[in-house]
Design a protein around this nucleic acid. Sequence first.
DNA 1: TGTATAGATTATAATAGTTATAAAATAAAA
DNA 2: TTTTATTTTATAACTATTATAATCTATACA
Lengths: 154, 154
Amino acid sequence: MKQRIERIKKQLHGQGYKLTPQREATLTVLLERESDHLSAEEIFLLVKDKAPEIGLATVYRTLELLSDLSVLDKINFGDGVSRYDLRKEGVDHFHHHLVCMECGQVEEVMEDLLNDVEKIIEDDWQFKVKDHRLTFHGVCKQCQEAAAKVKVNE
Amino acid sequence: MKQRIERIKKQLHGQGYKLTPQREATLTVLLERESDHLSAEEIFLLVKDKAPEIGLATVYRTLELLSDLSVLDKINFGDGVSRYDLRKEGVDHFHHHLVCMECGQVEEVMEDLLNDVEKIIEDDWQFKVKDHRLTFHGVCKQCQEAAAKVKVNE
DNA sequence: TGTATAGATTATAATAGTTATAAAATAAAA
DNA sequence: TTTTATTTTATAACTATTATAATCTATACA
């Protein structure tokens, strides 16, 4: 994790930004909770444990900065809050999400399933694709099983 | 358009809801501006021309109701406001969007390009897909051409 | 036809998420 | 060491959205 922060530090410096303790604490939280999809508020509360004096606005600013640098992506699952998701290193596309409508769980799909689709968009629509957002809403494996179990017992 | 409103009216009645003048005015605006992606505020202002006494909260409630009935979809392109997009009749999947990062224009892609991808998600992830959201961010044809022109003139 | 009932709307206020401002702190540059 | 630019804090403002209570409307029913 240290090295990853170090690399992001270099990236910041390259653009004239500093890695302040607040930014580092925020990054640490994001790395520790990499598989989650935290909101700004949630990140703020977690960062406060490491750096109690930090303000919510600073977290927002840090997240925006990291988003501009493509260190993370701002996503929206339609629940009224923006969520923040670290990009995986060495992967240039943004991964996909499966949002369970029953339990709310969010799974990540790392492999890029959109190569063919993107080709169609670029060829047929003459649209130069830079980024994409793909989210499936449905029912996760566990909730399907739970529903099946209930049915059997009825 | 009349018939389309008539069909939505039946759908509302079927669920115990009424098609009030305010709801009808909102639907009319949505149908008239079908190719746009209006925010609640924008819809509100347009509806006001037809029904000046309507309140913003009513528009919000109407949009939520229509969203519950799958008459329209609530979408979010990351600019801080929810936008509302009518479903096409007889099409059960939600269409895709191409958002131009230069001019902000939004194009709609009606054909469903995700059949193969959905199959992979259902088979490999055991995730029952109910709906999807796919948005590409990039540069539209016109902005690419404009950029090319500038380059030539330099 | 009049009355009851449920649903819908208005007007208003409240809430929640996010962003802006000015003063103070920090760190790098000269 | 002084200067300068960046960043943060604390606070306030703003914007989008939702909740509340009173009022209205339309249909069902006596």
